Simulated scan of single mutants.
Amino acid sequence: MVLNRRSGGRDLVRPSATRQIAQIAQAAAVSEATVSRIINRKYGVSPATRQAVEKALKQVGYERPLDNRLVVMLTPNLKNPIFALQAERVENELNPYGLTTIICPVYPGTPRERDYVESLVDAGVAAIVFLSSSNTLRDEDHRVVQFVESRGIPYVSINGGFPETEAPVVSTDDWRAAEPAIGHLHDLGHRRIGLLAGPTGNLPADRRVEGFLRALDRRGVDNSEEFVVRQHFNIEGGQQAATTLLAQGVTGIVASSDEMAFGAYRAAERAGLSVPKDISVVGYDDSPVLDFIGPPLTTVRQPIERIAKNVARIVTSLISNRTVATEEILIEPEPRLRGSTAPVAIGT
């Protein structure tokens, strides 16, 4: 083992692990002190030395302990119910392993993300979970993950990974997200279907756009790119994008988040239209409140429970120094039919 308690500024190592640490030091051709620094994720070790020791850890079969360790979860905010619910599910899955989760709301890609990690790392951070944080941004400076890697801290990303690194990723299959929504609306007779899309450069948003275009192309719908409007993943963004689409005469709207779908409700009302009589709306996420709005929102559900189970399995494996595949795990979303969709009105 490794870090158990701190005493006088020194990391305590269980006696039963002394022999293993000596074996690791011999295999990596380094001192036992260097092995201890790497096990406890300290500064002052070169990347080459760290890599050699990590390889030796696996060869010897050394497993880091799961007790008394912190898992830092970085997420955009907790005001959005889907982020709060996903964070709660991951925390519930990790708790039985003795892991304590610290949820840090950050604006992705900002210094605050790195500040959280730097301030907590010496408290014994076992792993980092990027929950739809800077891992979703294609063109941002990913300094936070560079710091995490420099300290040898394992990490896993939810809904998109960092393009410059190889690390485990668990995602909703956003390429498939539009398929059940488009299929449902198409079966109801809708042919002019628009997408309320998230910002360009946001990985889940870009994937949903690609899936939307493919779904319509498979059904022989032409010029579908004209009915994609990019905006922020919130009510105001949804309202602005939906206003544009309504002016183009769409009869069905697919939103990239439930909050955007709520914005579509507001845009329809202000245009003198009724949901679902005049315009059908499909959301995305399956927030807990959807049964209690009027009309209840048809949506595509993110499989947050399955994501959480996979994340917990990966985190505990990484902390224990077991090998984990880095191929992205894609979990298919599921439709939830409610009252916001109806057959296309005659004559439209």
Rank of each mutant, 00 (worst) to 15 (best):
P65H: 04
V72W: 09
M73I: 12
M73R: 03
L74M: 14
L74N: 10
P76H: 11
P76V: 01
L78C: 06
K79W: 11
K79I: 09
N80T: 15
N80K: 05
I82S: 13
I82Q: 13
I82P: 00
F83M: 14
A84N: 05
A84D: 10
L85C: 11
Q86T: 15
V90P: 04
V90R: 04
E91F: 04
N92A: 13
E93Y: 13
N95T: 13
P96G: 14
L99M: 06
C104Q: 02
C104E: 11
V106M: 11
Y107A: 03
P108S: 05
P111T: 01
R112P: 01
R112A: 15
E113P: 09
E113Y: 13
R114Q: 09
D115V: 01
V117T: 01
V117A: 01
E118R: 07
S119L: 01
V121Q: 12
V121I: 15
A123Q: 10
A123K: 04
G124Y: 11
V125C: 11
A127N: 02
L131I: 06
L131K: 08
S132D: 12
S132H: 15
S133F: 02
T136L: 04
T136W: 10
D139S: 13
E140I: 09
Q146D: 13
F147S: 06
V148N: 00
E149T: 14
E149Y: 01
E149D: 09
S150L: 04
G152S: 07
G152L: 10
G160M: 11
G161K: 08
P163I: 03
A167H: 15
V169K: 09
T172G: 01
A177M: 03
I182E: 09
H184M: 15
H186A: 14
H186F: 15
D187N: 12
L188K: 13
L188M: 11
G189K: 02
H190P: 03
R191P: 04
R191N: 07
G194D: 13
L195R: 00
G198T: 02
G198Q: 05
P199L: 14
G201E: 05
L203E: 08
P204L: 05
R207G: 01
R208Y: 14
R208P: 08
V209S: 07
G211E: 06
L213K: 10
